[in-house]
Simulated scan of single mutants.
Amino acid sequence: MKIISFHRRTPFQQILADLQAHVSDQKEHQTWSCYNDLSCLCVTKQVYERHQAHFNRYPATVEDDVTVSVHAEEEIPWGVRYVGAEKLWKRGRGAGVKIAVIDTGISREHFELRDQIKGGINLVSGRQNGHGTHVAGIIVAEMNQRGIVGVSPEAHLYDVRAFGEDGKSSLGTILRAINWSIENKMDIINMSFGMPQYSEALARSVEKARKQGIVMVASAGNNGGAVEYPARYKGVVGVSAIDQNGKLADFSSRGKGANIKAPGVDILSTWPGNQFKTLNGTSMAAPHVTGLKALEISRSRKNKE
């Protein structure tokens, strides 16, 4: 589009009548937008170039139709800042890294998430709750000058719904969820859930995923004591929760299996209904690490190109 501002001393209606007489194609007439009080005319680039000699008969300023943005800012939650995501974005934002979120389901209509969710599977029936949506936003909330932004805003998210509205699942369903993630060649699996007892079957499933090169990240637990499974398994990155001062949260599980600490107190993220909510928990800490792993994988691939 070209925007033409004619000299105010030349009667605009005279100019317009002259141009209309010169241009005989009715379709071209329809591409014009006139602002009589401004002595301005908007035409397509094609029309301008076709009749440029005639336009040039009149003193005018000709401008391209540039992009204009609102002065809005999206919030970078404290956890995203704390893990250093902003500096890492200079080298990539996780583009194309496939992340399975095994959780209660994700609100796929949320404006921060809908473009980043690339697929998934529903392994349970009934309504969702907001837990999975909150986890998803920490990882991939889009950089769109609205709302918030996640740690790896260009990663590809896969909604693997294995938990019901009550936040509970079964071991068999979790095994199916991990197996789906393996078969669909995920790069990372986020597991913001846990159980206190060891399971041989789950241990084997985790080992299978690890041998396929999948990075597995799990929340340590919120019992204030021993780390739960699957975070405690070898080959899984177990994540405990810290507050804004870097202090381990009172509720966070700790000890063997807690490989890393990440923000998990007063974490703002996405919530169903295009909303946002602040939550606490190691469930919030794990996706910070998942996002960092996505950035790491993306950088590694870029360096190999």
Rank of each mutant, 00 (worst) to 15 (best):
E73C: 02
R114E: 03
L279G: 02
R114D: 00
D243A: 08
H29Q: 08
G130R: 06
R161C: 08
N222A: 10
L16I: 11
S298C: 11
S300K: 15
V135A: 03
R91W: 13
R176H: 11
A294W: 03
L279P: 00
I121D: 06
S170C: 04
L113P: 02
V83Y: 10
K185S: 12
N223Q: 12
G172W: 06
I102R: 04
H110W: 06
P11S: 06
H134Q: 10
V135Y: 02
A155Y: 03
R299W: 13
V149C: 12
T61M: 09
A258I: 08
T133D: 07
N190W: 01
K304H: 07
Q26A: 13
R301G: 04
L123I: 05
M186K: 03
L268Y: 02
A209D: 04
L38K: 13
K234H: 15
N36P: 15
S169F: 01
I260M: 08
E296V: 03
S33H: 09
E74N: 15
E296W: 04
V101E: 03
H7A: 15
N144L: 07
S298E: 14
Q30Y: 10
I260D: 01
E200L: 15
N36K: 12
A72R: 14
M284P: 01
G94L: 01
A249N: 09
S169V: 05
D166N: 15
V23S: 07
E296L: 08
Y158G: 00
G238Q: 00
L41G: 01
A218K: 00
R254Y: 14
